[in-house]
Nucleic acid binder design. Structure first.
Lengths: 387, 387
DNA sequence: AAACGCTCTGAATCTCGCG
DNA sequence: ACGCGAGATTCAGAGCGTT
């Protein structure tokens, strides 16, 4: 992992076709780089299955007509850029299919993709994602704490945008989701599919020479922080095919992730490179997340007997003493003549199909009734200390 | 308007083809009726352009596989009904296109449609709505205050569903949106596109003989209350092509709207009819909404000076006295050398993009600090009295 | 009687590694 | 690829019985 080093943010004109700019067998030519050019052409030059995650903020195809005035007659600075103009839904669909296909090629088998949009485009994006074989994991609603009001009073205040989070295909189960970290992030409650965050304003919003916003749709770093924290690991490669002002790349670098960006507009691309170069990555020790229990070394129940923490003949009960079983020397339990593992015996006792014996069965430890999971923790600590 | 009368909730088998059950030139045969049958067949028997609004809760095509257990090993009662099974996305799309087309025929030119769904189906619904010519007005997020958790810790808690609100076509401008009523409903703030509401539980949830839920996906009445209050008027006709247990019809009747329902399952249809028959409509005088402000004459700020209600040189402040500005004779405000309208000055003072100066700026009226909107009301009354 | 604890349930695309 | 078994995993609110 090279998160501490300065990224190579030099320009590389992928669309113009310089073969040397993208090495087919190495990441050295394109990692931590923001390319100037069309994203489909640029992605075709990246190796297959080379990125861990994708965050895409494509044109929304807003289809605005005429200017929108505020109640005080000031003009709303709308998204009227050429890159957001499409001749028809069909043209937008073809564009969407093309870049989502190109993304699918460079995405690792267990990688995931995020796409953000509004009601103007997100339904078409979602449909095409499904049609291409991506498998939706969640749709996440970004609730804006400070949305633009509806000036005409003809609709509800459009106060949110939608992100779709999808794996590469239905069969994938080992995609990255830092469940425990997000739960801790959210005051020990599961992170929900609705996130309340302010829009990008103030010092975070990049300005042009005249002090106006540089880019019409710059996303807040807090949004990308949650996205990358939840679905990537330090050292992962994050691709943003519509880099814009480089929010994804900046947050990726801050969080010790690698990035690859593609941006069509040279001015945006240059601003993004300068922005990313100024980012100070977090120290790697700050990026360590709560380790999920699944990742802990497996301890067989017998290890508790070997360690002398439990003796054969000990009586185990459930938390309320309604069920009891005796520990045998071979690390099985016996109850009413039945012999089984701690898990099976817990299931049998409750009449269920399955049971986690570690948390179901209790023993007296230091005079207190405690789950045998506590003893497993002791064994794990001893193993960690010895190695 | 016949909201006070008992609706005709007798069954009518539209699918079986009784011509007498639907009169082509009168509403007497089908108004306030819940039909048993397939919705496309039933809608083809309704007159063209005959309903003011549609609320549709179609199958979501969940594509579940296997059983899901809670951590305590109890089984989640999943939606595994035949009506939610589709052979492919193509089959679901064909189904969706068919009923949305049938809906479009019976919808009045200025009518609107609501469709609710989850990430499993809503993208496809939204795409097809657009392809058929409907024009999206908003997507509304129903944030559930008490969603089912994610039991395996593999995704974000799926804590919301999405509703799409669309007009019949892009050109329509005179659709019903009770902007002021929704604003009043929301403590005088514009109603946003994210609504926090609990799921349907407790006494509101219809039960079968065994005390289990009668229908797997009954929607809360509060959701339909907001939908119908915002986008329909008393006396309007509301169609629900997937009536289920009749939540739409029940709330429509309570709010003095007419309804038409179609439900395929005879048991659900019968339960819905009984439910609706028990609904007591609200008294019609309770259904009068806040008069739209746009119908009020526009009063320029200068009119307050002309009327002598404010004098040049008067100091205005915000409600808490943190910002101040001086009224000039030309009806602009001045503060720290900056001159601007009441609205712009309010925005500048707060560092925001926009501000309603009428409610932001306050003056001492009869010794009390009050919003200058109070003075506008006085001017309006005088104008009304003079004419 | 109010408080408390236990049980039940809701549109859900919900494990993983080893043999 | 498939079967097997270890063992990891939940929030809000209603309802009901006990303290």
């Amino acid at each position: 992992m090279s998160s501490g080093s300065v990224p190579a943010v030099a320009a590389a004109d992928a669309a113009a076709g310089h073969p040397s700019s993208v090495a087919a067998d190495s990441r050295s030519g394109w990692l931590d780089t923001i390319f100037t050019g069309d994203c489909v052409a640029a992605l075709e030059r990246l190796p297959k299955a080379s990125v861990d995650a994708i965050f895409a903020d494509p044109p929304y195809n807003l289809q605005l007509e005429g200017a929108l005035m505020r109640p005080d007659q000031s003009k709303v600075d709308a998204v009227d850029d050429d890159w957001d103009k499409f001749a028809s839904f069909e043209a937008y669909d073809a564009f969407t299919r093309a870049w989502l296909l190109a993304c699918r090629r460079v995405l690792k088998p267990n990688g995931t993709i995020w796409v953000i949009g509004s009601y103007h485009n997100i339904f078409r994006v979602g449909t095409i994602l499904q049609d291409l074989g991506y498998w939706t994991l969640n749709d996440i609603v970004w609730r804006k704490s400070n949305p633009m009001p509806n000036f005409r009073g003809k609709r509800f205040t459009n106060a949110h945008e939608t992100m779709i989070w999808a794996s590469r295909s239905r069969e994938v189960r080992n995609y990255t989701f830092n469940y425990e970290a997000m739960k801790a992030f959210n005051d020990d409650l599961q992170m929900r599919s609705d996130w309340l965050l302010p829009i990008c304003t103030g010092g975070e919003r990049l300005k042009n020479g005249e002090g106006d916003k540089l880019h019409p749709t710059q996303k807040p770093e807090a949004l990308l922080y949650r996205v990358l924290l939840s679905s990537t690991n330090p050292g992962d490669v994050v691709l943003d095919p519509f880099t814009g002002t480089g929010t994804t790349a900046a947050v990726a670098r801050r969080l010790g992730r690698h990035f690859v960006g593609v941006e069509r507009d040279p001015a945006y691309a240059e601003a993004a490179r300068a922005r990313v170069a100024a980012v100070e990555p977090a120290p790697s020790e700050g990026l360590v997340l709560q380790r999920p229990k699944r990742a802990e070394p497996r301890i067989p129940f017998g290890a508790l007997l070997e360690a002398g923490l439990l003796a054969p003949g000990t009586v185990l009960t459930d938390a309320r003493g309604r069920h009891r079983a005796i520990v045998r020397a071979d690390a099985t339990l016996e109850s009413d003549g039945v012999v089984a593992s701690i898990h099976r015996m817990g299931a049998i006792a409750q009449g269920l199909d399955a049971c986690n014996g570690w948390t179901f069965w209790h023993a007296h430890v230091d005079g207190e009734l405690q789950a045998i999971d506590v003893l497993r923790t002791i064994v794990r600590r001893e193993i960690a200390a010895a190695s």
